[in-house]
């Protein structure tokens, strides 16, 4: 529990107090150990409480993430209305890349996080969901240098997403910039499918710039 606020508080004529209204906040991590009290209060534990109603995209990505235990993917599109599909990670990398795209005039279609070395089917599922959003024709696949998540596994996932949707990976993936673990194996796969990629010598900013130019730059 991180916050308990009682307001207003009423004093009865016999001197006792009654809380007329209360507001409580609990972090998700603590819910497990307070199940009893939450049930008593009538809180539905199967319905995670968000600040807003999740979109179909957000719900679908959550379901793909829950389908297997390898790695984590997240996707949000609340507040995002652009056409640049972002397959990005991890926590800090995603924040940095979203800024880099926006600050170079790009309009992201979504926010995403890949982490913890997800399975091929998970990155494939995330990329497919993004590519099926209205107005999204191309994706940018970018992360900060990875040490646990594998470059070749993500490459397989995003290329497979294109193929399964009947799209050419070389056309659909504007840029692939994930340096790090198993990068040489990943580059072999990307070469085979004609996907433009960048290693660690290309900054996250420049990779994002390439994505903006190729997706929004009027076919440049």
């Amino acid at each position: 529990m991180t916050l308990a606020e009682i307001n207003p508080l009423a004093k009865l004529s016999d001197g006792s107090f009654v809380a007329l209204d209360a507001h409580m906040e609990m972090e998700d991590e603590a819910v497990g150990r307070h199940k009893k009290v939450l049930t008593e209060l009538g809180v539905d534990l199967s319905e995670p409480r968000e600040m807003y109603e999740p979109s179909d995209f957000e719900r679908n990505v959550k379901a793909i993430d829950a389908a297997d235990h390898r790695g984590v993917i997240q996707g949000k599109d609340h507040g995002f209305t652009g056409n640049i599909g972002l397959v990005i990670g991890a926590g800090g990398g995603s924040l940095t890349l979203t800024d880099a795209v926006r600050n170079q005039g790009g309009k992201p279609a979504n926010y995403a996080e890949i982490g913890g070395n997800p399975s091929v089917s998970k990155s494939c599922g995330l990329a497919k969901e993004i590519l099926q959003k209205d107005g999204v024709e191309k994706i940018a696949v970018m992360m900060s240098i990875v040490s646990n998540t594998r470059v070749d596994i993500v490459a397989r996932g995003v290329i497979k997403a294109c193929l399964e949707l009947g799209k050419d990976p070389g056309e659909t993936i504007a840029i692939f910039r994930i340096p790090g673990a198993w990068e040489d194996e990943g580059y072999k796969i990307l070469d085979k499918y004609g996907v433009e990629y960048a290693d660690r010598s290309v900054s996250m900013w420049d990779a994002a710039g390439t994505a903006v130019a190729k997706i929004q730059g009027g076919g440049a």
Binding site: Q132, R156, I159, K160, L163, E164, L165, G166, I189
Partner: peptide
């Protein structure tokens, strides 16, 4: 919506 799944693309 295309929900085709492909097997053995890479391996």
């Amino acid at each position: 919506m295309n929900t085709e799944t492909l097997n053995s693309v890479f391996i």
